[in-house]
Write a protein that binds this DNA or RNA. Structure first.
Lengths: 335, 335
DNA sequence: CCACATGATGTAACCGGTTACAATTCGTAG
DNA sequence: CTACGAATTGTAACCGGTTACATCATGTGG
């Protein structure tokens, strides 16, 4: 094997040599910058084709300084809210020429730090972080890399970074008020773990502190369909029934609904159920589940736009509250 | 402002100058390569700390040649199978030091080509592509970049690239056989669009060609919960009932179940329902839906391992079939 | 026929790291 | 006291592009 490496990719210099022009000319052709004669341009393009030349992203990044990637940190992909949000985020970023690098943190702060470092180390131009409590080490990291950071999934003008998301406290209060307006005086709140999920935490705090004349009891279970069923079974065991169930996630609401049906309890005649997230099947279950619609796609799109604008202009993004609406369906009734 | 740029990030040369050592020494400290005296090392580390120096990924990539990223092409993130698969893929890649860049194609070949190019252009070291029909332009692209490509979501030893996934034909046949074994002589197959989804296509073909003594009728609807309900409504309208419904996606099965309940048809007494994918709520609906469990996580993990091994060793990955099991629940009965 | 504008192309430095190889220092065996 | 080798550290080339600036060939007005 001669020094002409066996199957390394061709470089710009190879093209230049082969086409008998200078590297500058090849570069000009690549960036179709004005001043190259038609004849030369064609010759170079042919050579590029023949050699199967492909410019190196790393080299380009090295002198332009931008990697055209942004990083997203999410607790999990295996939850439709995050998946849908990322779907929209990727879509919008892609339109603006950015690629999305996804890192899953499991909601664990130490993992989040590690993954954030990995993303920054890779040279992402910005970071979007979803719903987790951030550490001072994370902040130090961000300071160091001087990179725009956006927080999503909750809205808080006081936060260290611009937030784009739902005002979880307001939403939760709204839900509780709604149930109260239907006449429910006692509400059982079914929710997931609070230690790794500050969205849930915010909702719970708001409900606890709400100046609404309702007796509230909290039922912590896992954040999935079986969790909702578990909560109902526990209520049955303790013979502790409220007239309304407020599930801080629709998956739990579905589990609760199924379990109540299994036990012969009629919804909404005997018990009303209200969920959060407005997942697609919440509209089609029997009865449909009254829920709070969180426009995850909208959040993703806005986050993409805000972050790219921030990167382009250098002006810090503004916090943005994404509205959420109560979607009334058959699972709740007036008492 | 002097030439000492205002707030550019510090470079390795800055550190060298400031610590009064050579660039080579700084580089050695960074890669904690053996031969640096303790004193020098500490001095350099302090300087790095003081200047807040952060090595540039692009520069590293430029001479090492590897970007430590791999790209994934998926039709959508907004579907739990893909989200779960990516979750596992990211997890496993991350363990091996690779970051995951996600691109969503919507199942459109032209978009797939464009996004594939974007990923390759970014310098990904490998590509994992899920469930879409690939074009010759895509193949040309891959040839050109000489990058390992893995196909997931279906299994086919004849394919142009190594596949890691479910043998959709075998699975579909298995499902049909199962229904036949329960005594069903006529089966209505509810499925999504076939033009953008070759997994569904493979299942349909297998069912059509299966040497099983069953009358089959196909009901194409949208691939979501409302779609399943639509199919049932259409059956009601046409008064065209089979004793069993085979839904090629659990979301459709759920829609069908809800719609049947709404119409007062009892499952499984009047009609049996069987789904695909074994989504989490399939276990908790009332009745639970008999389904085919597709271990998406397992597929993601295997794909990650196979691709990384391929990149490391240069040896083409072997195709791998991921098993799928029938999970029997209350929605099917013997007739 | 010459001066100068204009277009096309080449040269070489630079981006920020890595690394082969040279150079220097120091300890100590001869 | 000298010499040789190990331990450190420095120099400069290189990775593969971009780009400021120099160079050169034409063309046109004076």
């Amino acid at each position: 094997m001669q020094k002409s490496a066996k199957n390394k990719r061709a470089t710009l210099r190879d093209v230049a040599r082969y086409a008998k022009v200078s590297v500058a000319t090849v570069s000009r052709v690549l960036n179709d910058s004005a001043l190259v004669s038609q004849a030369t341009r064609e010759r170079v393009e042919d050579t590029i084709e023949v050699l199967g030349f492909v410019p190196s992203a790393a080299a380009r990044t090295l002198n332009s300084g931008n990697s055209r990637t942004i990083g997203a940190l999410v607790p999990t992909l295996d939850h439709s809210i995050f998946a849908r949000y990322l779907d929209a985020l990727e879509n919008q970023l892609s339109k603006q020429g950015y690629a999305l690098i996804v890192s899953v943190t499991g909601g664990v702060p130490s993992v989040e730090e590690r993954k954030a470092f990995g993303l920054l180390d890779l040279g992402v131009e910005g970071l979007v972080v979803s719903g987790c409590t951030h550490s001072t080490r994370f902040d130090a990291l961000v300071d160091r890399f001087r990179v725009p950071v956006l927080i999503t999934s909750y809205f808080d003008t006081e936060a260290r970074y611009p937030t784009i998301g739902y005002d979880n406290r307001a939403i939760a209060t709204k839900a509780l008020r709604y149930l109260r307006s239907l006449g429910h005086q006692s509400v059982s709140v079914i929710h997931g773990a609070t230690d790794v999920n500050d969205r849930i935490l915010a909702r719970i705090e708001a409900i606890r502190e709400a100046a609404v004349d309702v007796t509230v009891k909290f039922w912590p279970v896992s954040m999935d369909v079986p969790g909702g069923a578990d909560a109902v079974r526990e209520m049955a065991k303790q013979k502790d029934w409220s007239s309304a169930l407020l599930c801080l996630s629709d998956v739990q609401a579905l589990g609760a609904l199924f379990e109540l049906q299994r036990q012969g309890v009629l919804v909404p005649r005997d018990i009303s159920i209200m969920g959060f997230d407005d997942l697609e099947w919440s509209a089609v279950s029997a009865p449909g589940i009254t829920s709070i619609s969180l426009p995850a796609r909208e959040m993703g799109t806005h986050a993409a736009n805000a972050l790219v604008a921030w990167i382009r202009t250098g002006e810090r993004a503004q916090p943005m509250s994404i509205g959420a609406e109560i979607v009334v369906r058959g699972s709740t009734r007036e008492v």
